[in-house]
């Protein structure tokens, strides 16, 4: 049960964040931070199917995380889900075609090791 929830969280978070990044890149860079234009930009973002799907995935991940906290300690939950950092970096490289150089790999690995340590 514990590991099923971990797999759900990692899978849903990864799908959600990849979809959100893809959706926001399709929308294009937000330049205008005045309230009116910013509100209109978010109105368009809300109708973006990739962003809408990402919110759904993140909701699944959120509730699975709450369920995990009921059956496991936080010191198990946080390290187990830190796997998303590595998985998302790999998938962003291949699916979103981001250029991940040595520094980014090193940074992602350092963070993926650091997060479990902090949660202990």
């Amino acid at each position: 049960m514990k590991w099923l929830l971990v797999a759900t969280i990692v899978g849903a978070t990864t799908c959600g964040e990849l979809l959100q990044t893809y959706g926001m890149k399709r929308h294009g860079e937000i330049h205008d931070f005045r309230p009116g234009p910013l509100g209109r930009a978010f109105g368009r973002v809300a109708r973006n199917p990739f962003v809408a799907a990402s919110v759904l995935f993140m909701a699944v991940s959120f509730f699975a995380f709450l369920a995990l906290l009921k059956v496991a300690d936080l010191s198990f939950a946080v390290p187990a889900t830190a796997a998303t950092y590595v998985l998302e970096t790999v998938l962003a490289r291949f699916l979103l075609k981001e250029r991940v150089g040595r520094r980014r790999w090193a940074g992602a690995l350092l963070v993926a090791c650091g997060v479990p340590l902090i949660a202990l």
Partner: peptide, 25 residues
């Protein structure tokens, strides 16, 4: 959520993820 979406409208996911992990610190 909204500020993260705004940031992702121009920044790479592989940039945003590690940088915002500073929140744990």
């Amino acid at each position: 959520m909204l500020s993260r979406m705004t940031l992702l409208s121009w920044a790479d996911l592989t940039y945003v993820l590690p940088v915002t992990a500073f929140g744990y610190v």
